[in-house]
Simulated scan of single mutants.
Amino acid sequence: MTTVRIWDLPTRLFHWALAACVIGLVVTAKVGGDAMNWHFRLAYAVFTLLVFRVLWGLVGGHWSRFATFFPTPGRIARYLGGRAPASETAGHSAVGALSVLAMMAALVLQVASGLFTDDEIAFAGPLTSLVSGDWVSRATTWHKGWGQYLVIGLVVLHVVAVFAYLARRKNLIGPMLTGDKRVADGVALPSSRDGAGNRVLALVLLAVSAGVVYAVVQLGAAPALG
């Protein structure tokens, strides 16, 4: 067996940080009250992480790039037919990629709607002043209803899938902790870049992502024109 670096450190930290933040978001939403202050902070953290992941999907390590795992019809057909080569299963498989992209899309919708929500008691999203009351009502209804249930459902599905793979002796957790995966000798797979330069780039992109989030949030504080 040969060891290949699949997940670079920035991708691994993103994964676990996002998981922790999503759990925190669910808990603080259910607790309510003063915990909502932390709900907002965690939401901004998730927003930052999502922007970072989009950027990292363009310039990150080989297996973290969207081009490597994007679930095209051909890749999906090969995976479901048991014909997918190692280059299409070492990282995210075609079905796994669908799960990842669905989770990111659901979180984007949830974060976006949260920016415009208003509980009409004590907490309102930072951009509520930019849209009409009808849009605030729609965003609030989605955020508190189908939006949160969609995210929770996808998280549960993800966890079930991970343990289902474990039952089939396919460990998805180990590589996301160590970054490495063991493959059969003779299988030629590229290793993801994971050196100091790559990590410095990730820090720069994380700072840029935080700046983007700050700028978006501040839009609601800007005086209206006209």
Rank of each mutant, 00 (worst) to 15 (best):
L50G: 03
G133D: 14
V212M: 03
Y44W: 14
V204E: 11
A43P: 00
D119H: 03
A90G: 07
L25K: 03
Y214R: 13
C21K: 04
L130N: 01
V95F: 13
R138C: 00
V136K: 00
C21R: 06
A184F: 06
L172G: 04
F40G: 00
A196R: 15
V212F: 01
W63F: 14
W38V: 02
R5M: 15
A210D: 12
Y165I: 06
L205N: 09
V183L: 11
A67D: 09
V213Q: 01
G60L: 07
T89S: 09
A86K: 05
L13M: 07
T141E: 09
R138T: 01
S113Y: 00
R75T: 03
V208Q: 09
G61K: 05
A210F: 12
S137G: 13
P175M: 04
M104E: 10
V183C: 10
V187T: 15
A196Y: 10
S191L: 07
A210S: 10
G197C: 14
L189H: 10
G145T: 02
G91N: 10
G125N: 02
F123K: 03
V187G: 05
T89K: 09
G33E: 02
T141F: 03
A112V: 05
V31G: 01
A124N: 13
E120T: 09
E88W: 08
F66L: 15
L9N: 07
L107H: 01
A161D: 08
H62G: 05
M176W: 05
V131S: 00
V111T: 03
V111D: 00
V162S: 05
H15W: 06
V151Y: 01
A188Y: 07
L18V: 15
G133P: 07
M104V: 10
L101F: 06
A45Y: 03
L150Q: 03
L130V: 12
A112Q: 01
S191N: 13
L189V: 12
H143I: 01
R168L: 11
G32V: 04
F52K: 10
T140D: 01
L177F: 04
S137P: 04
R41Y: 08
R5N: 15
P10T: 09
L18T: 14
G133V: 11
M176F: 05
L130R: 03
L177G: 02
I173Q: 04
S191E: 15
T48P: 03
P223R: 09
T89A: 06
P175T: 04
F47H: 07
D118Q: 02
F163M: 11
V204K: 14
L18N: 10
R83L: 10
R65G: 06
G24F: 03
G145R: 01
D180L: 08
T89N: 05
L201R: 15
G74A: 07
S64C: 05
A102E: 06
M36C: 02
A106I: 02
T128N: 04
V160L: 14
Q218G: 03
V208Y: 08
R199P: 13
W146Q: 10
D134Q: 15
V155A: 15
H15K: 08
P223H: 11
L18S: 09
R193I: 10
A164Q: 11
T48G: 11
A77M: 13
Y214K: 08
G153V: 04
M36F: 02
G147C: 01
A105Q: 06
R75K: 14
G195A: 12
R65S: 07
P73C: 07
A202R: 14
G114E: 00
I23P: 02
V59Y: 05
G61Y: 06
A20F: 13
A45N: 04
N171C: 04
